[in-house]
């Protein structure tokens, strides 16, 4: 809806990006000299141990944090303008559903705020709820749903206003492995049907390798990118069994090496 009309393939472009938090105990470097591009239609995972700045980077894209050095553009504009243009949907670690709203009203929240008309709103809710397979649960309140379903509802909410960019901050981190596998394959299908650009933060190697077209390995203190891996797995259809193929295991090994390298550097 609010893209730059295909002017460039680059959705996010960071150059020499740094962010230092000033705390009572002194400065904490969350990001240092991050150079990274995310192209339209890519599924990019950010992986690294806690404190590596992966969530911070996502929050900088979303204009929830301000970088202290370097430049970043989102859709060719500043993150602030991108946010004001409502050009991304953000999925948080927790579902952050409003407990007093039913599922459909939670999905309607951004639509209400952005001033969509009644009929348009209904159609968009229906579409978003279908995309995350929550049909039949529209009238339920969040507490009546399982954790996985709540997180799906929060994804529907992020999809409802059709932003081209989806920012996901460990959306499945709190879920058990079985539910997570299921949601991973659903997310891939969703990505294929909606053709969105997805930036996905995780600390699970299999999740990162399974989902991504590009894996960004990060290391802590100071948060920096140690490796950018282009996935050799097929784009689009990826059955869960792909995780047993040598190709998959090779990628996973490279991610693990990257993580280990980042750590030995530190300790």
């Amino acid at each position: 809806m609010t893209t730059d009309g295909g002017k460039s393939q680059s959705v996010v472009e960071a150059k020499g990006l740094g962010l230092t938090f000033k705390t009572a105990d002194g400065d904490v470097v969350a990001l240092s000299d991050v150079n990274l591009g995310i192209n339209r239609g890519e599924f990019v995972s950010f992986i690294g141990p806690s404190g590596c700045g992966k969530t911070t980077f996502l929050r900088v894209i979303a204009d929830l944090e301000q970088p202290t050095s370097g430049t970043i553009t989102v859709n060719g504009t500043s993150p602030t303008d991108a946010r004001l243009n409502r050009s991304y949907g953000y999925v948080f670690q927790a579902p952050a559903l409003f407990p007093w709203r039913t599922i459909e009203n939670n999905v309607a929240l951004p639509l209400e705020i952005m001033g969509y008309g009644d009929a348009d709103r209904k159609a968009r809710i229906k579409k978003a709820v279908e995309l995350v397979n929550l049909e039949g649960f529209e009238k339920k309140f969040p507490w009546q749903l399982s954790g996985g379903m709540q997180q799906r509802a929060s994804i529907a909410r992020a999809l409802a206003f059709d932003a081209d960019l989806l920012l996901m901050d460990e959306p499945f981190g709190a879920l058990d492995e079985i539910v997570r596998d299921h949601l991973n394959s659903e997310l891939l299908k969703l990505w294929a049907t909606t053709q969105k650009t997805i930036a996905f933060v995780t600390h699970s190697i299999p999740e990162a390798v399974y989902l991504s077209t590009k894996i960004v390995v990060m290391s802590p203190r100071p948060g920096r990118v140690t490796d950018v891996i282009d996935s050799t797995l097929p784009h689009g259809e990826r059955p869960l069994e792909i995780r047993e193929t040598p190709e998959f295991l090779q990628l996973a090994a490279r991610v693990r090496d990257g993580l280990r390298a980042g750590h030995s550097y530190e300790e």
Partner: peptide
């Protein structure tokens, strides 16, 4: 309201 809910509203430019 938790910070995460306020952040959410901010991403919508509410």
């Amino acid at each position: 309201p938790e910070q995460i809910q306020l952040d959410l509203m901010r991403t919508y430019n509410a």
